[in-house]
Every structure is written in C-alpha cells, then in structure tokens.
C-alpha cells in the first residue's frame, strides 16, 4: 500500500499469481477491455514471441474519490515459468493481496500445487505465510471439458478456506467478482 497524503490517494497492489498458462493475463485483459476507460490506465503487457508473459503485466484501475481520497489499484501478473523464480519474488514484494489463479483442468493439478507451494515459500521469505496473508482463489477455465470438480479443487488448494471464485476469464465470467473479492480482502485486513 502506498499512501500519498499530498495528492490524497491510496494505492493498493494486487498480484495475480498461479501456474503458467492459467489465465492470469486473460483476467487483466478482460478487466482492461470491460471497465469504464476513465477508470483505467494502459495495459502494459510484456510478452515473448510465444505469447507468454515475459515478466509481468500491469494495469492501473481506480475508483472515484471517497471522502476526498482516491483509491487506485495496481494489478500485476507474475510470469508462471520456473526460470523467472527470482523475478516472481520481486513482483510479489509489497503486494497487499494475491489472487491465485488455478487452472481447473485435471492435468494441471500438480502445476497448481507447485505454484501454491511457491507462493507460500515466497511469503515466508517476506515474513508472512498463506495463513496470515490476504489471498483468494480463482478456479479458472470452468468451460473446458476435462476439469476437476470444484469440491476436489477446494480440498487440494483451499485448505485455509479463503474466498474462492469460479471463472471463465476468456469470456469474463467471474473476473470482476474475483477483483472485487481481492479488494474486499485488502479492505478487511485494514481494520
């Protein structure tokens, strides 16, 4: 969180974390294309030639002034590939909340678990943990044929019973619900 008392603004950082090709960037792309243009900046997307996130995507969204103060949200995605491990750690630094974007397909079970374990390790290095840090889960790709049942995903990934959302990010289903859920998580931790 960054509080700017001179400009009466507060900036929150929300990081979309999860296995590679899980739909993190797709979430940001949908938000960018469906939010009131007056409430957002440019979507900065750094992709390789293979359309993989190079190191992060960045989108700034904001709300109107509340009691004279403007809330802004910096949304980041992290690169899913293993060799960007150290970069992931740095992008995660200073995050106020994490959206863990899980891939619902059965064959991605291990990738989801590996990414969640990675998140926990990085939080521990920041003197936090999954139990202490504000995070939520999005079960993405619910439209695909070979998907795990939500109740099984809950057992595998949501052992801490954080808020979870089903999504089909490519069509926008659940995308804004997830974003609102993440922001509410941040707000609840402020009190």
């Amino acid at each position: 969180m960054f509080i700017d008392r001179l400009r009466d603004e507060v900036i929150f950082k929300i990081v979309y974390f999860g296995p590679g090709l899980g739909g993190k960037t797709t979430n940001l792309e949908y938000i960018y294309s469906h939010i009131d243009p007056r409430l957002r900046g440019n979507l900065i997307s750094l992709k390789t030639k293979e359309d993989r996130t190079l190191y992060f995507d960045f989108l700034q969204v904001e709300l109107g002034r509340i009691k004279g103060k403007k809330p802004r949200f910096h949304l980041y995605t992290i690169p899913g590939q293993a060799y960007y491990n150290f970069s992931r750690k740095i992008v995660l630094k200073g995050a106020d909340a994490v959206v863990f974007v899980a891939d619902s397909q059965k064959e991605r079970v291990e990738d989801n678990l590996y990414a969640l374990e990675d998140l926990e390790k990085k939080l521990i290095r920041q003197n936090s943990s999954l139990a202490a840090f504000p995070w939520i889960i999005q079960y993405n790709k619910r439209d695909l044929p070979n998907i795990e049942k939500v109740k099984n995903l809950q057992v595998q990934l949501n052992f801490l019973n954080v808020p979870s959302f089903e999504a089909i990010a490519i069509y926008g289903t659940g995308v804004f619900e997830t974003l609102r859920g993440a922001i509410r998580m941040v707000i609840s931790k402020l009190s």
Binding site: V10, L39, V61, L63, I66, F176, R180, I187, S191
Partner: peptide, 25 residues
C-alpha cells in the same frame, strides 16, 4: 498505521463503490 488515513467509514464507502464501478456488465 494506515487507520488514520483509511478510517472505517472510508472502508465501507469503498466497498459500496466497488459494486458500482467494478460491476459486471
């Protein structure tokens, strides 16, 4: 602490504003 800047009323209003501005179209 952030509580001086972001009091409880601010947090409630922010929550309400979320539904208005970040609603599903």
């Amino acid at each position: 602490t952030a509580s001086d800047f972001l009091d409880s009323q601010f947090r409630e209003l922010l929550s309400a504003e979320l539904d208005k501005s970040f609603g599903v179209k």
